[in-house]
Amino acid sequence: KKKIKIYIENENGEKKTIEIEVEGDIDEIAKELAKKYNVKIVKIEP
């Protein structure tokens, strides 16, 4: 498992940072999160 930080922006332009532990393809997981929460991924840090 890797701990990563995902910087997101919602439709109101509010920026947030999510810190999660992931296993597998980080890009795939980030895309799923973006779709699920309707946010834009700004940056992903390993």
Rank of each mutant, 00 (worst) to 15 (best):
N38V: 02
E28H: 08
D27L: 13
G24N: 03
V39F: 14
E11W: 14
K36D: 12
I26F: 10
E19T: 11
V22P: 03
K16H: 14
A30T: 08
Y7V: 09
I18Q: 01
V42A: 03
I4V: 14
V39T: 05
G13L: 04
N12Y: 14
T17P: 02
N38Q: 07
E14T: 08
I18D: 00
K1S: 10
K40R: 06
I6S: 00
I4H: 07
L33N: 00
D25F: 04
K3R: 15
G13T: 01
K1I: 12
N10F: 15
E19I: 13
E21C: 14
K2M: 13
E11Q: 13
E23Y: 13
I4A: 06
E45T: 06
V42P: 00
Y7W: 13
I41D: 01
Y37S: 14
E21Q: 06
D27M: 13
K40C: 14
L33A: 01
K5P: 00
A30N: 01
I29F: 15
K3P: 05
I18F: 13
L33F: 11
E45M: 09
K2N: 09
E45V: 12
E28S: 11
E9K: 03
K16M: 15
E9G: 01
P46C: 14
K3H: 11
I20L: 14
I26E: 04
T17L: 06
Y37H: 15
K15H: 13
L33D: 00
V39Y: 09
D27H: 11
I18T: 01
E23G: 06
Y7H: 11
I8Q: 00
I26T: 04
E28A: 11
K1Q: 07
I4L: 10
A30K: 04
I29N: 02
E9L: 07
D27F: 12
E45G: 05
K36M: 09
A30M: 15
P46A: 13
I41K: 00
I4P: 00
G24P: 01
I20E: 01
K31Q: 10
E9C: 05
D25G: 03
E23V: 12
K31D: 07
K36P: 00
T17F: 11
N10Q: 12
K35P: 14
G24H: 04
K31T: 07
G24T: 03
D27R: 11
K1R: 12
A34K: 09
Y7D: 04
V39L: 05
E28C: 10
D25E: 07
N10Y: 15
A30I: 15
K15V: 15
E9H: 02
I26M: 06
K36A: 04
Y7G: 01
E32G: 06
E14F: 10
E28K: 11
N12E: 09
I41W: 03
T17D: 03
K43T: 06
K40H: 11
Y7T: 15
K43N: 06
E45H: 04
N12I: 12
E11Y: 10
V42N: 04
V39C: 12
P46V: 15
D27E: 11
N10T: 15
K31R: 13
K1Y: 07
K35T: 06
E14V: 11
E28V: 09
K3I: 10
G13R: 03
E14G: 07
I29K: 04
E21I: 13
K35N: 07
K5Q: 06
K1N: 07
K31P: 01
E11C: 12
K31C: 08
E11P: 09
K36N: 05
I44N: 01
V22A: 12
K31E: 08
L33P: 00
K5D: 01
E28P: 03
I41N: 01
I4C: 08
N12R: 13
E14M: 11
I6C: 01
K35G: 01
D27A: 10
I29M: 07
A30D: 01
I18A: 01
I4Q: 01
I6A: 02
I41Y: 03
V22Y: 13
K15M: 15
I6M: 06
V39D: 07
Y37V: 13
I20Y: 05
V22E: 05
P46M: 15
P46E: 14
I26N: 02
K35Q: 08
K36Y: 10
D27P: 04
T17K: 05
K35M: 06
G24L: 02
K5W: 09
E32Q: 10
K16L: 15
E14D: 11
G13M: 04
E14W: 12
N12C: 14
K5A: 05
K5I: 10
P46Q: 14
P46Y: 15
G24S: 04
Y7A: 02
K15D: 05
I44D: 01
A34G: 06
I20F: 08
E9D: 02
V39N: 04
Y37E: 15
A34N: 05
I44L: 04
A30Q: 03
D25C: 07
I8R: 00
K15P: 08
K31F: 05
E21H: 08
A30W: 08
N38Y: 06
